[in-house]
Computed example of a mutant assay.
Amino acid sequence: MQLPNAEQLRAAQAVVYQRLQPTAQYRWPLLAEALGTPVWVKHENHGALGAFKQRGGLNYLQQLLQREPHVAGLVSATRGNHGQSLAAAAALYNLPLQIVVPHGNSQEKNAAMRALGAELIEHGDDFQAACEHAAQLAETSGWHRVPAFHPDLIAGVASYCLELLSAAPQLARVYVPIGMGSGICAMLAARAALQHSVEVIGVVSKHAPAYARAFTSGERQCIASQTLLADGMACSTPDPQALRWIREGVSRIVEVSDREVAAAMRLLFSATHNVAEGAGAASLAAALQEREQHHGAEIGVIISGGNVDSRLYAQVLAEQLDLLG
């Protein structure tokens, strides 16, 4: 299997733009001051569903229905943004959708998925357990199971990467959060399609280090996620194909703590008045951690989403959470 090529990315971009407008990328002076270097922020929190995932869902559903026009329904697992993406896309085709989330999932993301028309099922204590239950439901019902990682998801998501890299041809490095891997693999595909020289750096939670460990060792292991803040990066078992592409194209992976993520969320609000969820602020947290390495180079960070529960966000801003360091 290969990463989507330039032709596939452009085709997916056309599908995405039938429903969505490109999001902005800005250079914020106060962030440049904090980082000691020019920084581009890609605002996927400005999308219609507040996260980059919507792009992937649109392309995945269109491609699926071209291959399998008689799909009866869809089943998938999520921590939130992937589920919202599928719910919005399924509604366009009047397809029923079951979404499995682990117990304790974001209540506001759950409410958003229900409002978009998904049947929400709570099962298990983590994303892996939710995935396994979704597979069982799909087998029982005969509905199509939508994975968390797939080339059609990558191709749709890559539209945000094409926007950023086209707007910033001189970008030296970009920090990209890793959940199951669609976002960072999309960046690798876009870099190749545009023949851009940007260095791609992955970011994971220090408390969900499965991809970081596998990146170093080459071996996939199940490592329980303990992050309290970055649920969008709460991966316990890396996808094997994503891992292969990440190891081939990513220069390194930076691990950030919940405390660093919370500080980045506060900085994004004070410097830009943008709301970022934990995974959405992780790339800025990594860039801050590596501040001494920038040397004036232009860097990019991705606000991959802004869908954070209001009570949790208020506690982050007020520094009232006892977070993992």
Score class of each variant (00 low, 15 high):
residue 5 N to E: 11
residue 6 A to V: 04
residue 9 L to N: 03
residue 9 L to Y: 02
residue 22 P to M: 07
residue 29 P to W: 11
residue 30 L to T: 05
residue 32 A to V: 12
residue 33 E to V: 05
residue 33 E to C: 02
residue 37 T to G: 01
residue 37 T to I: 01
residue 38 P to I: 03
residue 49 L to T: 14
residue 53 K to Y: 02
residue 57 G to M: 08
residue 60 Y to R: 09
residue 64 L to E: 11
residue 70 H to T: 15
residue 71 V to Q: 01
residue 75 V to S: 00
residue 77 A to P: 04
residue 82 H to C: 02
residue 82 H to Y: 02
residue 84 Q to L: 11
residue 100 V to G: 11
residue 104 G to P: 00
residue 123 H to T: 01
residue 129 A to C: 12
residue 129 A to W: 13
residue 151 P to V: 10
residue 153 L to G: 12
residue 155 A to G: 02
residue 160 Y to D: 03
residue 161 C to P: 02
residue 163 E to A: 07
residue 164 L to F: 01
residue 165 L to F: 12
residue 169 P to N: 08
residue 170 Q to G: 01
residue 178 I to E: 13
residue 178 I to K: 13
residue 178 I to L: 12
residue 182 S to A: 12
residue 182 S to D: 15
residue 182 S to T: 12
residue 183 G to Q: 07
residue 185 C to Y: 05
residue 192 A to G: 07
residue 192 A to Q: 15
residue 193 A to L: 09
residue 196 H to I: 00
residue 200 V to Y: 04
residue 209 P to W: 12
residue 215 F to W: 12
residue 227 T to Y: 03
residue 231 D to R: 07
residue 233 M to S: 12
residue 233 M to A: 14
residue 236 S to P: 00
residue 241 Q to G: 10
residue 243 L to R: 03
residue 245 W to V: 03
residue 250 V to P: 09
residue 254 V to I: 15
residue 256 V to W: 09
residue 270 S to E: 14
residue 278 G to Q: 08
residue 278 G to N: 10
residue 280 G to C: 09
residue 280 G to E: 09
residue 281 A to D: 01
residue 285 A to S: 01
residue 287 A to T: 00
residue 290 E to P: 02
residue 302 I to D: 08
residue 304 S to C: 14
residue 314 A to E: 10
residue 314 A to R: 12
residue 317 L to E: 10
